[in-house]
Design a protein around this nucleic acid. Structure first.
Length: 295
DNA sequence: CAACCCTTATCT
DNA sequence: AGATAAGGGTTG
């Protein structure tokens, strides 16, 4: 379908040669996009798109790849339970499904990163929401955060080995893992100042039961990004209805993430002087206050 | 069940 | 070769 071609929008990140980041959708090379929880993999419905028909990708895909992009039904309808999808095991699954590496767009990384700065742990719902917003699957978001946690851990370790006794220095503030994808904040948003994004750092404690924290309970503006995203989206494109039944999948279908990207970019344009986080936050607040009519 | 951690596989 | 998304095993 309409696979947004290059990037019509003039992204400030023009400097980056790899402008494929402009694409809001992850370049998934292959089938996949499961979605153990989402009723339907938003990614699939949208266009998780094997955006770039890479030769090798196609190669490998040919074997069994359901090609999520083209076939929305690639994935067995595991409506509900999920793993119950015993699928065609009759073939004994002789063909080991090849692993495919999704390449997230800069925008996605940007958002993920930004979020990670604030929260190392997302609740189930938050992950779902985020995944919806970013046009990723819950699993992908989950994996990303997991990998990110490990990465930051490694980073901290290397930066802050041990105190001799094997006790990490706790006295001093733990080095906040610099969100890696700096290119995002500096490239896309084109901001320069080294802004400490740690302002709303509400470290999510794994201890707190996630379930107890239905994102709605804390959707007050104390939280920014996530809430903002959803609200912005809902208020902008949907009637703010927020039916429990249909999360973000809906608007996604009608509004490809490219919109989000555009939006973010727009925000970036105006807020390029701020750090990514700040820009996002500001934009968030801004958008939240704006009613659909105003926009 | 989710998080952790290691490993594997893929992309740049 | 490095980075990292994703697979898989283990644990609480």
């Amino acid at each position: 379908m309409s696979v947004d071609p290059g990037c019509p929008q003039s992204l400030p990140c023009s400097e980056a040669p790899n402008c494929r980041d402009c694409s809001p959708v992850p370049l998934t090379y292959g089938p996949e996009e499961d979605c153990s929880s989402l009723p339907m993999s938003s990614a699939e419905l949208l266009h998780t798109e094997t955006a770039s028909p890479l030769p090798y990708a196609m190669d490998l895909l040919t074997q069994d790849s359901p090609d999520s992009s083209t076939s929305p039904k690639a994935k067995p309808p595991d409506s509900g339970s999920g793993e119950s999808t015993v699928k065609k095991e009759d073939t004994k699954a002789q063909v080991k499904k090849q692993k495919m590496r999704t390449v997230f767009s800069q925008t996605q990384l940007c958002v993920l990163n930004d979020r990670f700065q604030k929260q190392k742990y997302l609740s189930l719902q938050q992950m779902h929401e985020l995944s919806g917003i970013l046009n990723l699957t819950y699993k992908q978001v989950k994996t990303w955060f997991q990998n990110q946690r490990m990465k930051s851990k490694r980073w901290q370790k290397s930066k802050w080995p041990k105190n001799g006794n094997g006790v990490t220095q706790k006295g001093s503030a733990p080095p906040d893992y610099p969100g890696l994808h700096l290119n995002c904040s500096q490239g896309c948003m084109g901001n320069t100042p080294s802004n400490p994004p740690v302002r709303n750092s509400q470290a999510w404690n794994p201890a707190w039961s996630d379930q107890a924290w239905s994102s709605q309970s804390w959707s007050s503006h104390s939280w920014s990004t996530q809430t903002w995203y959803s609200q912005a989206w809902n208020s902008s494109f949907y009637n703010y209805g927020e039916e429990p039944g249909q999360p973000y999948v809906q608007f996604q279908q009608n509004y490809p993430v490219s919109d989000l990207e555009t939006t973010l970019e727009t925000a970036g344009e105006s807020l390029k002087y701020f750090g990514t986080s700040q820009a996002l936050d500001l934009f968030l607040n801004y958008s939240v206050n704006m009613q659909p009519d105003d926009m």
